[in-house]
Simulated scan of single mutants.
Amino acid sequence: MDTSPPRNSPAHLSVYKPFLHFLSQLYNLFPKMMDYLPGPHQTYFKNLFSIQDFIAQKVKDQEKTLGANDPRDYIDCFLIKLEQEKHNPKTEFTRENLIMTAYDIFLAWTETTSTTLRYTLMVLTEHPAVEVKIHEEIDRVIGRERPPVMKDRPQMPYTEAVLHEAQRFLDLAPLGLIRMARQDVEIEGFTIPQGTTIFPMLTSVLHDPKQFKNPHLFDPKHFLDERGTFKKNGADITFSAGKRSCLGEGLARMELFLNLTSILQNFHLKHPPGVTRINLTPDVSGILNVPHQVQICPCPR
């Protein structure tokens, strides 16, 4: 399993990284000017616009076969509401908003889930004893003859604990998504004025020693009780908290469970030849903690 970029790509050559970071800073400072300058940012936006075009075409296709009483998915539900609100000049249910919300869901779902799964495999390669326990649980609950299904999940507390701990340990979005105070708020004697930009700082909770015994170590016991039963933790806010928490949490947890158990049902993970350790610290740390691109050898069990 080679997750490293091609040899001739800028991502492979560390000398390009300072340039790319400098370029991103320039774009933040001079977004209008950068629209007219060549560079890798142009390819980035070209790819993003192609995704939007794909979604726009998908909306048109589904509109032709839409059943008002039998919605198939998010796009159908939005189209039905769009029709109901077509005479409301203040409605938020517009075609543009449909395309952009579907686009947001697509990007947030694919990138965060794939990155989390990739990081979990990296962590398990570094913690073979943990992988062995997952293998034992898979063999006991699922076996080798059928694929994993969601009804297996409640019977696999150790695997569930590993997934939760991997997400906590990765701390994918340390700053959380930006919020804004809708009114003046007083917290512990401090006043937050209306309109203030707020960063939730999820990392301060996910690494709080009062909530997790070994906050800076990967330890599945953070989500297991004395009997080995999965236990929830109120400080587990990898998907944020409150009304603005991630709406894709259920889907992401389902995909992580099914994908991880499917892989480990058939493979065990090893370092590639000549490699003895994987660097689990972030390659890029900012709004997101992005893990390094590494090679992992999945060997048939």
Rank of each mutant, 00 (worst) to 15 (best):
S4T: 13
P5F: 00
S9C: 02
L13C: 09
L20I: 12
N28G: 11
F30R: 08
P31M: 14
P31C: 14
M34L: 12
Y36W: 14
P38E: 12
P40S: 13
P40K: 12
F45W: 15
L48T: 07
S50C: 10
Q52M: 14
I55S: 05
A56L: 12
Q62K: 14
L66G: 02
G67Q: 15
A68V: 15
D70Q: 14
P71N: 10
D76T: 06
F78I: 10
K81E: 15
L82H: 09
T91E: 11
L98N: 00
Y103R: 02
F106M: 10
T112V: 09
E126W: 06
P128W: 05
V130Q: 03
E137L: 04
E145C: 06
K151F: 04
D152A: 04
R153Q: 14
P154V: 09
T159A: 12
E160L: 12
A166I: 07
L170N: 04
P174L: 06
L175S: 04
G176R: 00
M180S: 14
A181W: 00
Q183K: 04
Q183C: 05
G189I: 00
I192P: 00
I192C: 01
L206A: 02
H207T: 15
F212T: 00
F212Y: 11
K213Q: 14
H216R: 07
L217A: 13
F218C: 05
D225T: 08
T229P: 00
K231D: 02
L247F: 09
G248H: 05
E249H: 09
G250L: 05
G250Y: 10
L251H: 04
A252E: 02
S262W: 06
L269I: 07
P272K: 08
T276S: 11
L280K: 12
L288K: 06
